[in-house]
Simulated scan of single mutants.
Amino acid sequence: MSTATLPATRVRNGIKVPKQARDYVRIGLWIALVIVMVIWAMPLLFVFLTSVKSESDIFTTSSFAIPGILDWENYTEALDTGNLVTAGTNSLFIAIVKVPLGLFIAAAAAFALSRIRFKFDTIILGAFALGSMVPIQVALGPLFKTILDLGLLNNPVGVILPYIGFGLPMQVFILHGFFTAVPKEIDESVRVDGGGNLRLFLQFILPLSKPALAALFILDFVATWNEYAIALVILQNKASQTVPLAIQGFQSQFTSSYGPLNAFTIMSILPVLIIYLLFQRYFVQGMFTGAVKG
């Protein structure tokens, strides 16, 4: 004769309620998340602590030791001796112009490929997918010659145009998958009301695609802000430098000045951090939606 095993109970407010079994999978995931977070945060913590230490503290204390007195003079010295203000302004201008413009062009192309039927549309989409695999380095020579012939050397437009061109393939491919998942019934309702493709694109598809566009905005802003190879070839004078070039120049001049060098690095990542905090609520949603629905 078998007996049924009653679930364990506990008393809560005078009422017996069943105990919930421990979710060991969730506990394991949280432990893994904490470990990954610590590993990711350690380099950033090291850079910040070094940026607020004096030269003597850097060489006499542990790398992760908190200094008794925070030396904010490193930040002042980095601003005075580096080219951060000019380089930051240049990088911000390039990113503000390139990222929205590039995303709009990519969204328009993805809309055409997902909503308008025409010959060779699948081949064109495949060409965009292959274009995302082409490394920038193979095009630096021809790119320099083209920009030189156009008279755009040391000009922000000289890097904005290549940035848009190299960023389009991946953006079109991702947005195409997202747009394809948008119900076709929306198209029919717009057409019944007398609307065309332009109204459908601007008033319906783009608003519905905010999570995907926000995720791509963050990724594209970070990529544009940190881009080095094209900027090194096209922007050759100090007045037109971007942040990565300014960091490289500052490091070559002040190799042993670890405090100001790390302070320079911390200040250079602040705009990227601000952009992420502004759009982070859309980031995960947009990336997962594009990955699943595409």
Rank of each mutant, 00 (worst) to 15 (best):
residue 114 S to L: 02
residue 14 G to L: 00
residue 265 T to G: 03
residue 12 R to C: 02
residue 32 A to D: 07
residue 18 P to S: 04
residue 171 Q to L: 07
residue 203 Q to R: 14
residue 53 K to Q: 12
residue 176 H to N: 15
residue 160 I to Y: 10
residue 201 F to Q: 02
residue 108 A to V: 01
residue 191 R to V: 06
residue 27 I to W: 04
residue 179 F to M: 07
residue 139 A to D: 05
residue 17 V to R: 03
residue 52 V to C: 00
residue 173 F to P: 03
residue 6 L to E: 03
residue 159 V to N: 09
residue 46 F to N: 13
residue 116 I to H: 02
residue 124 I to H: 03
residue 101 L to A: 15
residue 109 A to C: 14
residue 204 F to C: 04
residue 121 D to F: 08
residue 117 R to A: 04
residue 262 N to W: 02
residue 229 A to C: 05
residue 126 G to R: 14
residue 228 Y to A: 10
residue 36 V to L: 13
residue 198 L to C: 09
residue 260 P to S: 03
residue 43 P to M: 00
residue 222 V to I: 14
residue 24 Y to L: 14
residue 81 T to S: 15
residue 198 L to S: 00
residue 183 P to Y: 10
residue 228 Y to D: 02
residue 35 I to R: 08
residue 89 T to G: 15
residue 294 G to Y: 13
residue 129 A to W: 14
residue 4 A to N: 09
residue 102 G to I: 06
residue 214 A to F: 13
residue 236 Q to C: 12
residue 267 M to L: 15
residue 41 A to E: 02
residue 172 V to I: 15
residue 41 A to Q: 05
residue 79 L to I: 15
residue 103 L to G: 06
residue 293 K to W: 09
residue 203 Q to D: 12
residue 250 F to Q: 01
residue 148 L to F: 12
residue 135 P to H: 12
residue 196 G to Y: 01
residue 186 I to P: 00
residue 140 L to C: 02
residue 135 P to F: 12
residue 152 L to I: 03
residue 235 L to C: 06
residue 103 L to C: 05
residue 175 L to C: 00
residue 10 R to I: 08
residue 25 V to Y: 00
residue 26 R to C: 01
residue 29 L to E: 05
residue 181 A to H: 10
residue 251 Q to N: 11
residue 22 R to F: 07
residue 270 L to H: 02
residue 170 M to F: 13
residue 59 F to N: 11
residue 117 R to M: 00
residue 72 W to F: 15
residue 125 L to F: 15
residue 162 P to L: 03
residue 273 L to S: 08
residue 21 A to W: 00
residue 114 S to D: 00
residue 286 G to D: 03
residue 284 V to L: 15
residue 31 I to Q: 07
residue 79 L to P: 08
residue 128 F to D: 06
residue 205 I to R: 10
residue 174 I to C: 01
residue 48 F to C: 06
residue 217 F to W: 10
residue 54 S to F: 12
residue 143 L to D: 13
residue 235 L to E: 11
residue 6 L to V: 01
residue 137 Q to A: 13
residue 66 I to C: 01
residue 183 P to N: 01
residue 258 Y to M: 14
residue 66 I to T: 04
residue 51 S to Y: 05
residue 163 Y to V: 09
residue 69 I to L: 10
residue 287 M to I: 13
residue 250 F to V: 11
residue 121 D to A: 12
residue 8 A to C: 00
residue 162 P to C: 14
residue 244 P to H: 14
residue 247 I to Y: 07
residue 152 L to C: 13
residue 43 P to R: 04
residue 23 D to V: 08
residue 245 L to C: 08
residue 233 V to S: 03
residue 70 L to Y: 14
residue 285 Q to T: 13
residue 14 G to Q: 06
residue 88 G to V: 04
residue 30 W to H: 01
residue 292 V to H: 08
residue 247 I to P: 04
residue 213 L to Q: 10
residue 138 V to P: 10
residue 81 T to V: 11
